[in-house]
Design a protein around this nucleic acid. Structure first.
Lengths: 349, 349
DNA sequence: TTGTAGGCGTTATCAG
DNA sequence: CTGATAACGCCTACAA
């Protein structure tokens, strides 16, 4: 008698159905053509009765496939990441893959650690929102036929699909909009760029733009780490003479929130004292009324998983870059201002 | 010669080090006492050289452990969930477990599907934020020695650890606070309770409270599904006579955001026309100034994973309920009002 | 149409 | 101190 506390195996099913393991295996892999009607029904019943479910571990060991897809994200608390996860999860679920979610915290060492762990679990593919520092491990993974798709951030020297956005274009779009609205003093606030391609591209685009428009003198880039440095930067920016219409441009939703809070605590009101615009489009931007450059993170997650699944399905076409569209969502935080207008614009009554 | 495109196996390491697989295996399981210094070094070098990493699939097959922990969450887009994931992930990572994240979308069928998938992957344990409808599958899992910890929501008849909060107490705390602030007409807005224990408990607590305080006539419970019904409910609530200070109490951050937006679109201002309080404490509550009943979701994730890891480590103590503290975070959305004060309180100037 | 006999990569047992 | 061997659950030639 089988121990009901043990998960049933294919042997249990075989015994219950009075056939061999091979026949059950055929049933499982839908090679149903050569199975007698009678046998088919018996196996079916045995499986139902035992609540049998094939072991992915055993299957994987044989087939060298795990039906596991790894995803390493930089910050799981970021709504941008959440939306990506949701998209990737939807696609993986549809194709019967499961998602191993890892949170690197933007820490290259933690990321490396996770790559190792994922490799030990024989992941079939990896969706990588990378710190940018683990190129060699990723290349090694690739060599072992683990498919890799880069998400958002690029890694130099990797010839794989990348799903992201045109950061230079998006930065220019946002800045053109701000200038049209009358702002001539713009601070770009970002977490330290480190080796993160998107951050670097955006900062470069920002610098080019403000130089081209001759407003670089009043348009600094702040790479902030920690709340204290943010407070200092915001204070310095707001105190900078000459007094004129200023706007803050934040690199993601997390920094947006922090910067907005700092401004509030410093006694500045958005948008009456300072304009705000941000990359990312957290759900709460709607209610606070923050103009954003929305990246459609959900689409990115979907697309990345789609590409990965396609590769796993045998697509060997050349590695490609996919850009999801960025969309400027205009809200109340960036009203039109008279050029050179001073601070302390009155709240409309 | 070994194919470098194949992941190295223990046999490759053994050959490279000139020892047997057994010896390498001893090395891997840190039974280092009986290994000669010389041998130890050779194995170490072979592993380094080959970038060998033991296969979890093979290990799992043998040991019937996968070092995989499944977590099924109801809504991955909810910041409450994100915080939980972060907590659980931190703990799992520390103990060398990986997290298989599944998003049930509050759909019992999808949840059932995921339970099956996770079982097929031989998860060692499951953290369950459940729809409440898959009791029998969970019991079956348990019988197979898969540890289960319930998160937030209870399942009747399951004798396992549960990490959650005291919903009745928290509801009373919030309502007592509102009454102290002067509100006498309070709407509780929740997603349909379905079989979700927390939602049911909160609604019951709300009903008891308003009955005890004799304000049930002006204090409805709205179970809303979809934006249209939310608009109708909010409109009805605000139009209800007599005109008096009203407050909306939302069951989670997602509904909070929707309800606040609806109010805004209907032309009501928070808190001048209507007070707001909510379960959950999304990061943006700070900047908008919403009073919340914070659940410390991160702590819940940590605690749940801690319990699971403890069980996996052999803890066989009785199943227990763990309550994280709920904390009322008072912000601007629930100002003190004169009892019975009418709508359209003026914005302070 | 069905069954037998390996082998996937690892660990445990037992014997040197 | 070290090594041969069997077994975990499944799949896949090859046979019958």
């Amino acid at each position: 008698m089988r121990d009901s506390r043990r998960r049933p195996t294919i042997a249990d099913v075989a015994k219950a159905a009075g056939v061999s393991k091979t026949t059950v295996s055929r049933f499982l892999s839908h090679q149903t053509e050569y199975i007698a009607e009678e046998t088919y029904r018996k196996i079916e019943q045995a499986i139902q009765g035992l609540h049998y479910e094939p072991s992915q571990m055993a299957r994987g060991l044989k087939a060298k496939r795990s039906r596991l897809i790894g995803i390493i994200v930089a910050d799981i608390a970021n709504p941008f990441t959440t939306a990506i996860l949701r998209g990737a999860e939807d696609v993986c679920h549809k194709h019967n893959y499961s998602l191993l979610v890892c949170n690197s915290d933007n820490d290259p060492a933690k990321e490396q650690n996770y790559i190792r762990t994922l490799r030990s679990h024989q992941i079939d593919g990896l969706i990588m929102h990378t710190t940018g520092y683990n190129q060699s491990m990723l290349l090694a993974l690739q060599k072992e036929k683990t498919q890799v798709v880069l998400l958002d951030r690029d890694v130099s020297g990797m010839h794989v699909d990348l799903v992201g956005m045109d950061n230079t274009q998006a930065t220019y779009d946002a800045l053109n909009y701000l200038v049209r609205q009358g702002y001539r003093s713009i601070a770009y606030v970002t977490a330290p760029t480190a080796d993160i391609s998107t951050r670097i591209e955006r900062v470069q685009a920002f610098r080019s733009f403000v130089a081209e428009h001759g407003i670089e003198e009043h348009s600094p880039v702040f790479q902030v780490e920690g709340d204290q440095s943010l407070i200092e930067c915001m204070t310095a920016f707001m105190n900078k003479k000459p007094v004129m219409a200023k706007a803050v441009f934040t690199g993601n939703a997390v920094i947006l929130l922090k910067a907005a809070l700092v401004m509030q605590n410093l006694g500045y009101r958005i948008p009456y004292d300072v304009g705000f615009i941000s990359f990312d489009d957290p759900d709460w931007a709607d209610i606070v009324g923050i103009t954003t450059v929305s990246q459609s993170a959900y689409e990115m997650g979907v697309k990345a998983a789609d590409r990965l699944v396609a590769r796993l399905g045998g697509d060997t076409s050349d590695a490609k870059r996919f850009h999801v569209a960025a969309m400027l969502k205009e809200r109340g935080s960036t009203p039109q201002v008279a050029i050179g207008q001073s601070l302390n614009r009155r709240r409309p009554s």
